[in-house]
Design a binder for these strands. Sequence first.
DNA 1: TGAATGTTTAGACCCATACCAAATTCCGGG
DNA 2: CCCGGAATTTGGTATGGGTCTAAACATTCA
Lengths: 146, 146
Amino acid sequence: MQGITGHELSSRKAEYLKYIHMQGDVVKTTEIAARFSVAPSTVTKALTEIAKAGYIEHRPYHGVRLTSAGTEYARFLLRRHRIVALVLSRHGLEPDEACREAAKIEQCFSKDLTNRICSSLGHPMMSGCGEIEHDHCCCPSCGHQG
Amino acid sequence: MQGITGHELSSRKAEYLKYIHMQGDVVKTTEIAARFSVAPSTVTKALTEIAKAGYIEHRPYHGVRLTSAGTEYARFLLRRHRIVALVLSRHGLEPDEACREAAKIEQCFSKDLTNRICSSLGHPMMSGCGEIEHDHCCCPSCGHQG
DNA sequence: TGAATGTTTAGACCCATACCAAATTCCGGG
DNA sequence: CCCGGAATTTGGTATGGGTCTAAACATTCA
């Protein structure tokens, strides 16, 4: 919640976490490896570290599942992605372009900065790449509820 | 010129280059080391690599100076910084905040993306952190001249 | 000229990411 | 129920970027 800075995970690990979140439930190592075109062992290593950070539960040989902290974090990552994409689309990028470019730059945006931008946009509900889910931890300053 | 992608130098090296540009003329290793609070040897190493990339001329024991490619690149870096800061200030950040936050995220913005945003802002001449110098390489698409 | 100062070199470490090969575990069909 | 193929993990190695310390080296000036 308040603790998130947005820099808890490296960008690669954050991508894995977002993917796990999108897949929902249990996700297998090979699935992630295939999605990102990397060797399974690369994924195993990252997963071990993400698990150590508390965002996923890793049952060796059986896949991973988000913890509640992981779900919360993934929701932040997704919201950040959409807000960044929205900003880009407000600057002339087509929705799909905005989404692609957002994926490249979002990792730099801290949670605070994301919230500031979110406020200035009037807590939008939609972005070119999906619905933006605001929650209790969205904007501490104004207490906005999605 | 057209060749710049914005990812030629790592973010740290880009910071060094911007600093060298701002200082103008010959800049000494110790000066950079002091500015960034790192050991002189760290700077020497980076400088050697930046020189190998062609952006500076390094005369060992005598300091560095931008090459013309380096000047051009530094001007891009500065322009990018100001445009990013301007975007942030349009989203509610105070000028100094926008400048600080821009420094944290600008390295993710490619030259193309920077140009897109620049166009959408109508090729602004000022940002909270300085004058934006558009030049022949700014916006190939519209041929805008600063 | 020689000591003080500034700079570079050499060697080491850390972090993130990635790979390969080998070992391990799992699971389903015979 | 056991065994082999598939999935997964382990362990070792590599690369790239950034950093440091200590030691060697160059410059400069009193």
